[in-house]
Simulated assay, not measured.
Amino acid sequence: MKRKISFYALHLCLCLAFLFLPYAFTSAKTIFVWPDLYSNVHDRIYFFIYFSLLCFFYFNYYYLIPRYYFQNKQLLYFVMIACFLLFFLWVSRFLDHPDHNFLDFRDHSKPFLKHHELFKEGMKPPPDLKKMPPGPRPMSFDAMGGPPTQYGHTALVYLLGVISSLLFAISGRLQNVEKEKMKSELAFLKAQINPHFLFNTLNSIYALALKKDDKTPDAVIQLSELMRYIITNANDEVIDLSKEINYISNFISLQKTRLGNTVSVDYQVNGSPFGKAITPLILISFIENAFKHGVNPDQTSEICIYIDILDDVLTMQVSNKKTFSIQSETGIGLQNTIERLALLYPNKHQLKIEDTHDKYIVNLSIQVV
């Protein structure tokens, strides 16, 4: 909602600035002269023309470009642009000089030298340049005039509006294509992650069932909580951080139930996760990787998981003691999570992985808002 308000506020400010642009640089002493729309015909004309060009900018951006330019109808689009240009030129000429021909580019103002009424008693007319001797001459007055400035001014503003709207539309289209591509990549990565979680968790339940452990029913309940989270929340762009922390806690509890006393798990969460959001399933792969590659029933296994939440930054450290059964290759879930972090949190996360002789340590800091 705040983003929409800021969007409309920005457009409103830009529109107002554009409408008052003709009055910002005037021949008066001041930088800005407030337009007199009530009694000044010239100000009303400029305001109407600029307002019409502003309306055409949005019409071109939201209708003509998507309907014609992006639908492989570029020739028809540019023909329409040319027609609208002629229309605006006619409007600007008609409003300023309604009695003149639209195609007449001459200046119809009366020659200055023929304005006899200006030279009253006590005022001398300008000298006749033809009768003056050779030498420096005073400034001459062009009696023929030149092309009216309405055409050039209106055409310049119109073309700038068309070009800028085209650039904005093309840039927005490229951004949308990039977003759709990112969504497709994320959907593919999630499709790989979710079955990966289910496969590993079912293996844990299967191991408990083989041992006929009394904790099997609790493990089934914890598995149902995990699956409910994946089904209902995994496809959301962001989710409340407290739900993600609760999911991690259920996962760790399930692993501790399965492994029993064969692993020492130090799990701590500091700070409040409430009121903050994060992408779902972005943290669990690092924790899962520690249990997958750092646990051996025949050895003493150690896993440490520390999560600190301070302001809008979450810091997580996951470390596990290496065992002889550890796999050298990176798991699918971990690699996908690294790719998702690069896509979803560019310049908003730091990931450092230390792979030493006897330990595997992951340090992750990520912005949560």
Rank of each mutant, 00 (worst) to 15 (best):
S328N: 12
K179Y: 09
I305Y: 09
E225M: 05
D311H: 15
G172A: 11
V362F: 03
N336A: 07
F197P: 00
T262R: 12
T337E: 05
A17G: 15
L53M: 12
I307H: 02
S109R: 01
R258M: 09
F286S: 10
K131T: 00
I49G: 02
Q175L: 15
K256T: 13
Y306P: 01
F199C: 10
N270V: 12
G122C: 00
A82I: 10
P133R: 05
L241R: 00
V368W: 00
G275V: 11
V295F: 10
V162P: 00
E237S: 11
F87N: 03
A207P: 02
N246L: 10
L344W: 05
L54C: 09
R137E: 04
S285Q: 08
L334P: 00
S285V: 05
N194V: 14
I307P: 03
E178L: 14
P148M: 08
L198E: 13
L156S: 08
K73A: 09
Y77K: 01
K190D: 12
H153L: 08
K2N: 15
K322A: 11
E244P: 01
S272M: 04
P138V: 02
P297M: 14
H42K: 15
L118I: 03
I205N: 06
H100W: 06
P273N: 15
P134D: 05
K215F: 07
L64F: 11
G260S: 12
